[in-house]
């Protein structure tokens, strides 16, 4: 710390390094006994309670928009029979991880960040360390794991709600045939599509949890700092998640051959 080198971007690199360090610490510490089960359950419940309703409310119109858009598009190019498959793929592979990411970062992550940040400025975190208890083990690990679990569950929920919404709009509003909608599922969609979707959700949950914890544990002085930290945590998480989504999608599309090709 004595002689910090300075060049443009050094600060950003340093922050990134510390963020990764926290990520590694969390992974290592999550295997340490005793596991903080109570905290984990409480946090999971808490994150679920702040994210479920908004997620459901967002995913219905999301599914509908995709279904309507694809419905008219496929009609124009004369591929109505693939409407079902296309909208399901779009929802499961892209829309649902993104919706999940937005809500986990926006609702769950901001709550985690604000909670840890206010504990930090009230010196609770310091007190815990002095009492010989690692705040990472005690507070951060259960929160990150809870964010991951809830993220996976939410992703499942968004997929189901989105697909149902898409079905409803396609069949009822656009007079599609239920049979064709369902049949085209199996023509294009495959099980790995669901896997990648859940894996994405898991990784998004991890990133959202780590970023929120990192910003929460390092607020820049005073209550105002906590507000800024929450704000930054959400923005940083969004950027990271969209980038990671892009990377994962690219890898997936390269590695797993599309069905029927």
């Amino acid at each position: 710390m004595t002689a910090q080198t300075t060049f443009p971007g050094a600060g950003a690199l340093r922050e990134t390094g510390k963020l990764c360090q926290l990520g590694i610490d969390v992974v290592r510490t999550s295997f340490r006994r005793p596991f903080q089960l109570r905290e984990f359950i409480q946090q999971s419940w808490f994150i679920v309670s702040v994210t479920v309703l908004p997620t459901a409310l967002v995913s219905i119109p999301f599914g509908a928009v995709i279904a309507l858009q694809l419905g008219s598009l496929t009609r124009q190019i004369g591929a109505q029979s693939f409407t079902g498959a296309a909208s399901v793929l779009a929802i499961i592979q892209q829309a649902s991880p993104i919706v999940t990411a937005l809500l986990i970062a926006g609702a769950g992550g901001s709550a985690i960040c604000a909670d840890l940040g206010s504990r930090k400025i009230r010196e609770e975190i310091d007190a815990m360390e002095v009492l010989g208890v690692s705040p990472i083990h005690r507070l951060v690990v259960p929160r990150v794991l809870a964010a991951m679990l809830v993220s996976v569950l939410l992703n499942g929920m968004v997929s189901v709600v989105g697909v149902l919404g898409g079905y409803f709009f396609n069949v009822i509003m656009q007079d599609g045939t239920p049979g064709a909608y369902l049949a085209s599922f199996s023509a294009l969609a495959q099980l790995p599509d669901l896997w990648i979707s859940e894996i994405k959700a898991l990784i998004f949950g991890f990133i959202a949890g780590i970023v929120a914890a990192y910003r929460g544990l390092n607020p820049a002085g005073g209550p105002k700092g906590v507000g800024d930290a929450v704000n930054q945590a959400v923005v940083i998480t969004f950027l990271l998640l969209f980038f990671v989504n892009f990377v994962l999608t690219t890898i997936y599309l390269t590695v797993v051959p599309a069905k029927g090709s």
Partner: peptide
């Protein structure tokens, strides 16, 4: 160590 912080630092 037993440490008393300036503001008590109790767990809220």
């Amino acid at each position: 160590f037993g440490v008393l912080f300036q503001d008590g630092a109790l767990f809220g």
